[in-house]
Amino acid sequence: MPDTSSIIRCRNVWKLYGPGTDATRDLSAAELNDTYLQTHRLVPAVRDVTLDIQKGEIFVIMGLSGSGKSTLVRCMTGLVDTTRGDMLIGDDNLTGIDARRLIDIRRRRISMVFQDFALLPHLTVLDNIAFPLRVQGKGRDARLARARELATLVGLDGREDRFPHELSGGQQQRVGIARSLTTDPEIWFLDEPFSALDPLIRHEMQDEFLRLQGTLHKTIVFITHDFEEAIRIADRIAIMHNGRVVQIDTPEGLILNPADAYVAEFTRKIPRHRVMRAGSLAQPVTPLAEGTPVSATALLADIAPRILSSDRPVPVADDQGTIIGAIDRQQVIATIFGTGAV
């Protein structure tokens, strides 16, 4: 992939907590090891993370609490200072950035949705949504008009004059989402946006989120501790463990080739037919394959009934219509019930 299309670039990003973190900038990469950290009583929240996020993709950072995912996203937004390494948003390096420039980036290019919503209790729904424009000094009429558009977009029609405490949790997060879209940012950070919601509402909000992204096409960095949520919405997933990024891959890639036992443990419980797509299951074409081909991007869950009811392998075609292989009943059964040998 060409480097120009990546909009966020982390280069050996470290975030350390403890006394004397500045001194670590002068060390070589090899010197900054566990022994050094222990003797200097430094706690690494993020360790040596290098990754690129492409324009327009949904990039999910997945990890359990304490894995460093929240800190990493706060490095990306400048909410915490990166201790070491380069943290680039477009052409701006956030490491050591000037405060004014950072304010400017936040006002125009990036925005964030918070786990606990962070709605201002003294403002109405509409004023909350319009808040980022108010900070920029936009006129009242202009910002309220824009806020009304967004309230409609996220389905808050008729609730514009409520106060946050008069809304349910799901509705409150809709306000948070609308507010983060007010300035039409390029990059949209969502920090565990649905973790505080009930499972049913969470599912509904994930659908809503995918629907929004279908029309907005933002670059999205999405934090979650829920692997199922991650595979449901992600283009690519970075799995973090003890401050390190252990693996970056597509949901399928993680399931097919987990980098280590830690990742495998997550993928083990995931129903495969909800993740695997026809393309990655297709075997070399045999003459036996017959019937209309299925799309390579189709989820196994959607095509399984047809394959299972057919005696012969079903052909798989890519988006140009070229047949790239076929899937038979045995493969479907092995994928769904098998233990990994696909």
Binding site: I103, R107, M112, D116, H122, F131, V135, F189
Partner: peptide, 29 residues
């Protein structure tokens, strides 16, 4: 105040004065 309130002020691009007067003090009402 929850840390997210301060972070919201930052992410909305508040100046230090806006941060105090528009976000922190009203939220701590």
């Amino acid at each position: 105040l929850p840390t997210s309130v301060g972070e919201l002020a930052s992410m909305s691009g508040c100046s230090p004065r806006q941060r105090l007067l528009l976000v922190l003090l009203p939220a701590a009402r």
